[in-house]
Design a protein around this nucleic acid. Structure first.
Lengths: 174, 174, 174, 174
DNA sequence: AATGAATGAGCCTTCATTCAT
DNA sequence: GATGAATGAAGGCTCATTCAT
């Protein structure tokens, strides 16, 4: 039950930070959304900053794990498709997180206040993800408007492009 | 004279809003950076929100104008290249603004508080810009790390792609 | 067992209240120092204020008792010396308490919130103690820096002063 | 007028800190007593701690100056009396301050948070003052209950004691 | 007897904003 | 046009206190 309160706080914070921005979201508001008293937040997190860091920690672990599972696929012929699907799923499952992530990547000071690992990780994952999803435009587009995104088309096309005999416009800059 | 103070405030605000986020930037800080008393800000802008709106107005006008000039080129053979170069220049000249713009596009509530026109404009320009620069990945990449961006290569390639006989993968999703 | 927890709480509270002040000491801190959960404190005391009152009760009883023992000495020739030694011992044994007591005597509002008895007692004891220890300066000095206090000299001198044939400056204002 | 607000804040703070204790006095309460908005306090002082330090600075300067004036008296025969009267006046004029000072001297942590100079000064002045006023008991008594303090008797007696031919109980420990 | 998660009032501080100068 | 003292609401955080376990 201890974990439940903590999780609800993290979930509420992620949602609000993502949609309103970290600085514009008050702790009071976050606690309210999580359905707990505001003081409780400080039983689990040392500060509002620490809560932000915790969100990154959790999502980073989730992403890392998803990729590892996908990459461990033994069958080479299915591997690419699984990776691409995993990438889309990762974006999908953590949509709020990416939204938050995009904001913070634009703010050098805030970014620096998070641990070193976040900075490196954010860059690495973005590269990883985008090399699969073709480009940040796709990812960003998908984050903002998932309904109208042609997931299957994109998926099929990506696979096609990376499969021998496909060729075409290969060496595009990212 | 009047305009000089106003401009310095707008410039300071843009820089700070972009690098630290709108909510995390205080009016005091902005006035300090602009080298004026904090009260003066309210001679020119009704509120902090109005200042943000003013930044959008100014940058929107700048972008619009740049495009118009480029598109008015009479010579068809040079037109595409000029447009592409204009797009890169626009991003370059307003780098802080794009940084800010990306943050705010992620925040539905903030976005809505700006005028309707901003919402539509932001979307339209992004599409316009990105259809030229290929994708937001490129634009975003360029915003964050302009030093290492292969401007000329990209430019050449884009022109190539849109020039007859290029063809190929045209209908890519954005 | 019951008493042990209670005593540890009182001891911890006395130490912290004395060295950091009552208001600046948190219940959490006190419980931590006592090595118990913070909730337990409310099994023994109705409130933080009641804990303060309890400290006074305990120390007041201790002081009272010490004096009674000393004053009950039958042998007139030894009586004075024993009283003086008792006074010094009382100060010594309850050093933290005096420290706390001095602080609170300066704060009319806090003092009033304690029971009526405390106010009267504090004044009476101080007078009693100081008439023996010569003055609050001595007592206060001794509280703050017991190492360098010439206990024996003071003791001897006091006895001398109050012993017939000493006389001299008797009716000094306190 | 800037100075007036500042002074009113300092005066209100001194009074409240002295009578209720530093930690138990809220900034809101202080501002209210001073008749200003609570935010204004931070135009003049960086923090509540800084305000406490400012109080010490001001009173320390006042005390120092009073002593200097008294000590500069050329006439040797009047000098002692003037010094003693000055000491009493100093205590009188800064009664709230001494009250506060006594409290804080009992709290090692708070004391340490004030500048080094305060620690040394407090000790030196106390010694200085008390060697004149005979002892902290007198001073403390006078602080708490000035109405009933036999100022003139004490003054006369002190002078007598330090004047040649007086002698008597000279080498008392302080 | 004992724990510590949970509460919400209140703390110190910062903020956007106003207005006399 | 420009200043900065002044305001009071709101922010992040800590606190004394309660209560289910």
């Amino acid at each position: 039950m201890r974990e439940e309160s903590r999780d609800r706080i993290v979930a509420a914070a992620l949602e609000l930070f993502a949609r309103r921005g970290f600085a514009a979201t008050s702790v009071r508001m976050t606690a309210e959304r999580a359905g707990v008293a505001q003081g409780l937040l400080y039983n689990y997190f040392e500060s509002k900053d620490a809560l932000l860091q915790a969100i990154f920690d959790r999502s980073m672990a989730d992403v890392r794990e998803s990729f590892e599972v996908a990459e461990s696929d033994a069958d080479p012929s299915a591997r690419l498709e699984r990776l691409v699907r995993a990438a889309l799923e990762i974006v999908d499952r953590n949509r709020e997180f990416w939204r938050l992530s995009y904001q913070i990547r634009m703010q050098p000071e805030v970014l620096a206040s998070l641990g070193e690992d976040v900075v490196g990780w954010a860059e690495a994952t973005r590269a990883h993800l985008e090399s699969l999803l073709r480009d940040a435009g796709a990812a960003q587009h998908y984050v903002l408007d998932p309904e109208n995104y042609p997931v299957d088309d994109v998926c099929r096309e990506i696979v096609a492009r990376f499969t021998p005999a496909g060729g075409g416009n290969g060496g595009r800059p990212t």
